[in-house]
Structure formats: structure tokens, C-alpha cells
């Protein structure tokens, strides 16, 4: 049994196939999802989180089919995500952003301070969210997703906008989340992060699953280098 299983998912926009019959799974721990631009990674996240209906295929969470469920229902089943193009609530303060998420799962609002400290942006707690730097906004999205106490956490390019020290701290956080038994799926372009922290990596190219394996297997895979370096 896998925490997440995507079975034969295809997404078409008109005649263009963005995701082409992809089957993959993710277990507790950190799973990397990499591939060049336009490979279909974010579209696949949209399908898993329920924001987009696939043209065909199924999404299973702990073996239960959730393909027909809406995004808010999936959240209640333990799915959370962040966005590549940031989606923070700009009119609210950083703290309020997290409180909205806590309240939706009926968790106490006072946990917000703890979560903000955990991702390392406690100093921004009272700033309006559309005024904080990109890196802090990304970490805010992470804190907000964690506030729902997810079993399956989808992170879309979390490290872009982070400096070296912040990236290292983020890696450490990934380890903790993994130790807590959560399944984290990571779309990421920072290969140090992917190679250093993922237990398993899936590579997408042109909408299809190119290969899967451990970080060292991926690193030595010829097709992967070709997909990136052309």
C-alpha cells in the first residue's frame, strides 16, 4: 500500500497532452519529482490536489480512490500543497494566513507561532503577507500547508527564492517531516536538495514518466542528463 498512487493519469489541453499516462507512487519519506520545464510536474500536482480533473486515470490516497473528490475534501483527507506561483493571502498578515489553515482543520490558532518558528519566519508574523520577500512567502506557504497536519505534502519548487542557509534549514525540515511519517513530494530544480534529501526520485519528461529510482541511480541515468542538457 502506498500513501499516494497515481494511476494512468493523462491531462490534455485541447490537442496538447501535458501529462501522458503517468503512473507513480509515493510513500512516507521524501519523494522527488523532477524534470525539465514543461514536463508536467505542476499539472500533476494540480491533479493530485484536486484543482484539475484528469482526462483519464485515477488518484489514490492510502488505496482509496479520491479522483472524484474536490480540493477541500482532499485537504480533509490529509493532502496539502504549496504553489510554484505563490498563492499567499496577500491582504492578511503572515500569522493570519496560518490561522486560516489551522481553523479549517479545527486546530487551535495558537499553534501558528510554533509553525512560523518551525519554518523560520517568526519575525514576519505580523507583516502583511504580500509585503514579505519571496523566500519568506514560500516558507509561509509551507507553514500554512503544515497547519493542516497533512499525511501527504506536495511542495512545488519550495527552495526557489531561498538563500543557501535557508535552503539548508529547509532540508533539515524535510528530514523531520519525513521522520514524522509524512509523505512529502518535492518538485524541485535544486539538484543538491533533491539528491541530498530524497529517498526516491521520479523523472518526468514531455509529460511522461522517464524513469524512477534512488538519487544515485537517477544521477547516473543517461536519459535524465539528456532531458536536462538537450
Amino acid at each position: 500500500m502506498s500513501r499516494l498512487r497515481v494511476e494512468g493519469v493523462t491531462v490534455r489541453f485541447g490537442e496538447v497532452t501535458a501529462v501522458d499516462d503517468v503512473t507513480l507512487s509515493a510513500d512516507p519519506g521524501v519523494t522527488g519529482l523532477i524534470g525539465p520545464n514543461g514536463a508536467g510536474k505542476t499539472t500533476l500536482f494540480d491533479v493530485i490536489s484536486g484543482l484539475r480533473k484528469p482526462s483519464s486515470g485515477r488518484v489514490l490516497l492510502d488505496d482509496a480512490d479520491i479522483t472524484s473528490k474536490g480540493p477541500h475534501q482532499r485537504s480533509r483527507l490529509g493532502v496539502a500543497r504549496t504553489f510554484q506561483r505563490l498563492e499567499v493571502f496577500g491582504s492578511l498578515t503572515v500569522r493570519e494566513n496560518v490561522v486560516v489553515a489551522l481553523e479549517s482543520r479545527r486546530r487551535p490558532a495558537k499553534l501558528a507561532a510554533e509553525l512560523l518558528a518551525r519554518v523560520g519566519i517568526a519575525e514576519f508574523a505580523d507583516a502583511q503577507a504580500d509585503t514579505v520577500p519571496t523566500g519568506a512567502a514560500r516558507l509561509l506557504e509551507l507553514a500554512r500547508a503544515l497547519a493542516t497536519d497533512p499525511h501527504l505534502l506536495l511542495l512545488d519548487e519550495p527552495s526557489s527564492g531561498l538563500d543557501r542557509a535557508e535552503t539548508d534549514a529547509f532540508g533539515e525540515l524535510l528530514r523531520q517531516l519525513s521522520a514524522e511519517g509524512r509523505a512529502v513530494v518535492l518538485v524541485e530544480h535544486d539538484m543538491d536538495l533533491v539528491m541530498g534529501y530524497c529517498d526516491h526520485v521520479h523523472v518526468l519528461n514531455l509529460g511522461q514518466l522517464l524513469t524512477s529510482g534512488t538519487p544515485s541511480e537517477i544521477r547516473s541515468h543517461e536519459g535524465v542528463r539528456e532531458a536536462y542538457l538537450g
Partner: peptide
């Protein structure tokens, strides 16, 4: 060196 940029210094 692109390989460094994409795959990190460890490659």
C-alpha cells in the same frame, strides 16, 4: 559550467 548549475557541485 552547466552541469554544476543543474546537478550541483557534487556531480
Amino acid at each position: 559550467d552547466l552541469a554544476t548549475v543543474y546537478f550541483g557541485g557534487t556531480s
